[in-house]
Design a protein around this nucleic acid. Structure first.
Lengths: 336, 336
DNA sequence: ACGCTTGATTGGACCGTTCCAATTTGGGGG
DNA sequence: CCCCCAAATTGGAACGGTCCAATCAAGCGT
């Protein structure tokens, strides 16, 4: 019932040649005579031959595959980064093997282990968390690039990130240019990324001479975090005319808090987020935001990785891409 | 520089035993004497030994891997389905290899081909489009389950879907129970899924004796599609008090159209979507919806696949899961 | 015609495992 | 003590490819 897939040997037999020639025909068609080539090809698809990757990888001692660990598949941001990675990886004749991380560090480690067992030639980690166990395992064994916003070059790995400090300044500058002075910040918690964005906010405020107006409210990178932080901000005596929220998801939460408070966006309060997730572009939301160049980050990561595969001794590089402002409808000039 | 990974042979040498014993120790530790086991293990991790999956798969003639093709990674729905698949697949000792489809049918076909070369033991396709070229390739070669809302058993494949007709009726019934009678439907276009939902809407309207009130407006499964369809609906002379939109994304577009029209949700118009995407749960949106049991669909698909792997001759099964209503804030009793 | 170069083809070793038949060990019972 | 059996261990043949050195088959210039 299970005639098990035909092998190169079967093809050879049917075409009346040696298996070596079949192998050659597959890899370098121009090195076998046209006549043989034809009959080999005929035999191959008469039999429905499909090369066995395991055997090929074993013999080649390489897999032409690069592994991608996505820590949070639910984050819509991941999809875009993956697109970028795939496009670039494919263009170089490599193939991609995707694996999802999870809160469970052991599972995550297991996934990486699998990837390594499969002899991936490189690893791309998408997410801002360095898989704990994986670090050691990966280190020095397999070229790795981490796409994240944090851990800037702390490890000896290549990394790609967006420039959070710069992005945060862009956000503040945008509001400043619109005439806002009482600009509050809803933080994203105490993780690396959130701290950088906060630092950028403070730096920009300072450079505009608005040191006295700096006001940070505790939030988180979630709908709820933004909602709660914003309630705090609205309750404060200082009447903020604009709010820079640590990420888009939280900014959407901020919108809810503002509406609940009976104020209008952007008439009473302007809101700007960070990330550029597709969600913000929806008509009902129209969130102004600082967009990370997600696809580029993916593509650059792939480039970096391929370079390192080519030259493992190259010193680790850290690429920090500049995000860009997308002005939509949640920000407007301050009203007198 | 590249000492290339140690093999089972290196471990054997270092532990002073034969490679066969090392192999055995890895697979069935209890069949090796404790003393040897200890020294083998010591040698293994002194060397940082990691089994070579290619070699193992070759020798075993199986991969313990199942391939997953995700047609639209950007659709947040995919992530949840994948979660379900992974959980179940892992529980059975299998491993998952994820691959993304794309608009380009050739690329998609290529990805499936790769999966098959890797000797995956089964295939799960997430998406409502049957990868054109893949169909033939896959057919009869590799157990396959398709998770989709359409193609109900048309193919000889196992499939999982949610019951769109039933879900649409639930949506209408919910509105009906709230006292609504002038219920409009914004369609999702002319694809299979959209048609089923529309059919469910019409059936429900009929069974409530509201045949005369049936009103479908052309839309699409996008933010914009919902927006446009809803504008049509609002412009019509029949004053609809409630709108059932073909999916959540479009429902969010509907919300925008309604707001733009100066009406309130749910006071003036109730809105209900379909899918249950996470987005709808955001505070700013609070969309009432018919939620597909995404994780269950994934898990069931995995189960089905594993069953079929166990018994390839089992006749194809089609599981149609019932969705459930999640009432949030975009629907309320009709106001007199 | 003839040795030669060149291109086409082949046989067999090898990649890192698993598996099985065969061999070695280690006691226990008589 | 020796014999026998079970448990522990080993050697070598697959698995399905790739690659290389060796063999074969043509042309070609002189």
């Amino acid at each position: 019932m299970a005639p098990s897939r035909p092998t190169i040997k079967d093809v050879a037999a049917r075409a009346g040649v040696s298996k070596s020639l079949v192998s050659l025909a597959m890899r370098a068609p121009d090195r076998v005579s046209p006549a043989r080539l034809t009959s080999i090809r005929a035999a191959a698809d008469a039999l429905g031959y499909r090369p066995n990757a395991a055997a090929r990888n074993l013999a080649d001692r390489r897999s032409f595959t690069i592994g991608v660990l996505v820590q949070d598949l639910h984050n819509p941001i991941s999809a875009e980064v993956i697109d970028g990675v795939q496009r670039q990886v494919r263009a170089s004749g490599y193939h991609t093997m995707l694996v999802t991380g999870s809160a469970d560090a052991d599972l995550e480690r297991g996934e990486i282990e699998k990837l390594l067992e499969f002899q991936v030639e490189g690893l791309i980690i998408i997410g801002h968390r360095m898989p704990a166990g994986a670090r050691a395992a990966v280190d020095g064994e397999c070229p790795t690039v981490i796409i994240s916003r944090a851990e800037t070059g702390i490890l000896g790995l290549d990394s790609i990130s967006n420039d959070d400090v710069c992005g945060a300044r862009m956000a503040v500058n945008h509001l400043y240019d619109l005439g806002h002075r009482r600009i509050a910040h809803i933080t994203g918690g105490s993780n690396q990324v959130a701290l950088l964005r906060r630092a950028g906010y403070e730096a920009a405020m300072n450079s505009h001479g608005l040191t006295a107006n700096i006001a940070c409210y505790e939030g988180a990178f979630t709908d709820d975090g933004g909602y709660r932080g914003t309630r705090l901000a609205l309750a404060s005596p200082s009447k903020h005319s604009a709010i820079f929220v640590a990420n888009d998801l939280a900014a959407v939460g901020a919108l809810a808090a503002i509406a609940e408070n009976g104020r209008q966006v952007p008439e009473d309060v302007s809101v700007i987020g960070y990330d550029g997730m597709a969600l913000g572009a929806l008509r009902s939301i129209g969130l102004t935001t600082i967009a990370q160049p997600l696809a580029s980050m993916g593509a650059d990561a792939a480039d970096l990785l391929l370079q390192r595969i080519g030259d493992p001794s190259r010193p680790p590089a850290h690429v920090n891409l500049e995000p860009r402002l997308i002005a939509r409808t949640t920000t407007s000039a301050v009203s007198r």
